[in-house]
Design a protein around this nucleic acid. Structure first.
Lengths: 220, 220
DNA sequence: TAAAGAAGTTAACATTGTTTACTTTATTTT
DNA sequence: AAAATAAAGTAAACAATGTTAACTTCTTTA
């Protein structure tokens, strides 16, 4: 006999592959995610996945697209929340950025690593300023420049600079550069202050009202 | 017949493997470096490498160790050159850091990426302040804090912050985040200024005497 | 109800890293 | 110098991985 009836998935197997992939990389390195892992997890054969994705890379791309959605929907609302003072929004966005990387290190590496950068390029240029985290940051940066919070060079320059600082710190944290979690709070505090205009003397006070990364993440 | 005489390497095959690996990743992604590539390049059999390295990972570690030496010997002398003003040393060190990443992107990813972070931890803690780039930066940071050039929180905090900013910008550049090279100069200029004490008003002038990244690398 | 297409399976392939058994060269011992 | 031993190479086979081709079963639709 070739197959028993219960093995037949009807339409949702594609989503199941993605879902299991997400669950897997919450706990394991991305390069440990093999097609065997997924066929075992879904109870299908080794090649079933090819009915839903042209290749493993296409599956990874689907994960990345979905991951960027998750990331963007975490970041953009914080930056656009008009009820909060702008400084607080910046502080919280940076905070949540690093927290995201720390909480989902494998997903973060997948999203911002080198291997699929072509796809990311497409995603970032396709996404308009309303959905993309990068786009939302750029809008907020312009707002911050108008309010005298950020230096008034090109908005793109300032946006990349902020992103780059967050990306750098996040990467060092999740890639094993820093042994002690408790320093992260201090470092982020300083990073945050470095980003703001030097004329602003209220910045430390405003920032320190908000929660800290080390503490928050440790007790999760 | 089993083997002709000319095939026998005498003692230098190990170095040849490393040398060819370096040459290869100058032009290709690290994950394209297979044992077949190396056996073809050295004219040996597929398994000859196992007489010199316990596994492929051990070869990669040798490459990383050698790569860090290269990196450290590029960075440390710049930071320790007492003939240059400290600001210039900082500026040039950051400049050369980014240039290194841009010139050897695959090696840079190997050195600072996630996969072999365990080894890097060992290397950085083993290397003393005299040879390691990180160590040299920390020494320079203390000097900079004493001179009123950098903020006077913990030296480790400030060092990590600088490193993280350079790492973040370098990563964004080599991982395809930025389409236009000419903006890199401006961004580095701003990054550099953000790092210095806000009371220092000579910083832009001092910095702009020095060469720019985009231009320098483009005509290489 | 028959045909067609979607969604599975099985079996085979090439590529990769790796191991084992063997051979050749170099070195050391007697 | 001859013999023994170690070092450095080869060939052949493995398991794991991504992938493809040929086949089967379920679902839909004309």
């Amino acid at each position: 006999m070739f197959m028993n009836k219960s093995n037949f998935h009807h339409g949702n197997l594609k989503e199941e592959f993605i879902k299991h992939s997400f669950k897997f990389i919450e706990q394991n390195d991305v390069d440990k995610l093999t097609l065997k892992v997924l066929s075992d997890a879904t109870g299908t054969s080794r090649s079933a996945i090819y009915k839903h994705f042209r290749s493993k890379d296409k599956l990874m791309e689907a994960i990345i697209i979905s991951g960027f959605n998750k990331f963007d929907h975490m970041l953009a609302p914080i930056l656009k929340d008009k009820n909060e003072p702008l400084v607080d929004r910046f502080y919280k966005a940076g905070f949540e950025y690093i927290k995201f990387a720390k909480t989902h290190p494998n997903l973060y590496r997948l999203l911002f690593g080198h291997k699929y950068y072509k796809l990311r390029e497409d995603l970032i240029s396709i996404n308009d300023e309303n959905c993309s985290g990068f786009g939302a940051l750029k809008v907020a940066v312009i707002e911050g420049q108008d309010a005298g919070l950020l230096k008034k060079e090109s908005a793109m320059t300032r946006t990349i600079l902020i992103w780059s600082a967050l990306h750098g710190l996040s990467s060092l944290i999740i890639d094993g550069f820093m042994d002690i979690d408790k320093d992260i709070d201090t470092i982020y505090e300083e990073l945050f202050n470095s980003m703001l205009e030097s004329t602003l003397d209220s910045k430390v006070k405003i920032a320190s009202k908000l929660p800290f990364i080390g503490s928050l993440i440790k007790h999760k």
